[in-house]
Computed example of a mutant assay.
Amino acid sequence: MKILKCFENVAGLKVNLHKSLIFGLGVINDEVDNMAHRVGCKVGEFHFTYLGIPIGKNMNKVENWNPVVEKFNLKLADWKARSVSYGGRLTLVKSVLSYSIETLGLHFANSFLKVIGDGASTRFWEDPWLCELSLKDKFRRLSYFEVDRAVLVRDRIQWLDGSITMTWGWNRDLNGLAQDDLNALIILLNSYVKQDKPTDSWSWNMAANGIYTIKKMSGYIDDITIGNNTAHQNETLKNNLVPKKVEVFIWRVLKRRIPVRTELDKRGIDIDSVRCPLCDDDIETIDHLMFFVVI
């Protein structure tokens, strides 16, 4: 206690004993309890954290540093979010808006089908290959009777000389509605036209050649959102010849988001004057700065 009193007198800082802990190393617990009672603080136990660093753990192990690394990641993520450029923000906005494609009537997730070659990389029940939905979703009742739901197409279906052979693996006998579902599935399988390809591949059913490109997807979105209105199209489509930072700047001008003095004054920012510092002929507005100032 004398040492703590000396520290208070020298540093001018008061020690809060109610928030302090006392630890014992190489002594019995009774002595630690007795000392904590005399000092007026609580007994601490290992392991504990001091200034964000774990104390009492083996810091040679990577997992013991995970809490510290997570705190740094959170701090860095917040810092990066605040310091990201307008171009980066535009990219983030576009990535978020891309998830809204289905609201335009384009079911992107259901627009890909597996094309069967050897059937070695396509799951019979879980991958979409026979129709837009997976067979697990289309014949849900029937899939419950499957022994292995991750079974491959080649393990259930074989094509040879234009004929098809089906090998099933059920965990019980089928009857009633399950048998009806199997009959419907067999009809679909018999109508399937297998491509002459050595391996399985993906195909995009919104393109004639089955190849997905961003240009084609952008064209579909433009057809839905813009249509054939040429005048509106000229206002909406971006010009690839204009740099992104110029597009962002023009957008900020149109939205009155340029920090001219009048805008800063509207937001309560203390400035010495709202007059234009370049010409001192008028107050500094966005229109004055863009069209009337003479340098």
Rank of each mutant, 00 (worst) to 15 (best):
G117I: 12
C131F: 02
R257I: 01
I116H: 06
E247G: 07
G210V: 06
P54I: 05
G117T: 10
L188D: 05
K94N: 11
S273P: 05
C41Q: 05
V68N: 11
L25E: 04
D272I: 14
G52Y: 03
N58C: 08
C6R: 10
W129C: 07
L21S: 14
L97C: 13
T230H: 07
L241D: 13
V96S: 08
N228F: 12
K94Q: 03
L13S: 05
R275D: 04
A120C: 14
N183A: 12
R156Y: 06
A109C: 01
Y144D: 15
G176C: 04
V69N: 02
S134P: 00
F48S: 08
E247F: 02
S163T: 13
E284M: 08
C41A: 02
M166T: 14
S100P: 02
L21E: 12
D78S: 15
P67A: 00
D173N: 15
S201Q: 11
I186R: 15
I258G: 05
E146D: 11
D280W: 12
K5L: 07
K244N: 09
T91K: 15
F145Q: 06
V43G: 03
F7W: 05
T236D: 03
L135Q: 11
E146I: 06
K5T: 03
N73S: 15
I221E: 01
D272R: 13
F7A: 10
G268N: 01
E132I: 01
L264G: 03
D137Q: 07
T49W: 04
A207W: 02
F124D: 11
R82L: 13
E8R: 06
F249K: 00
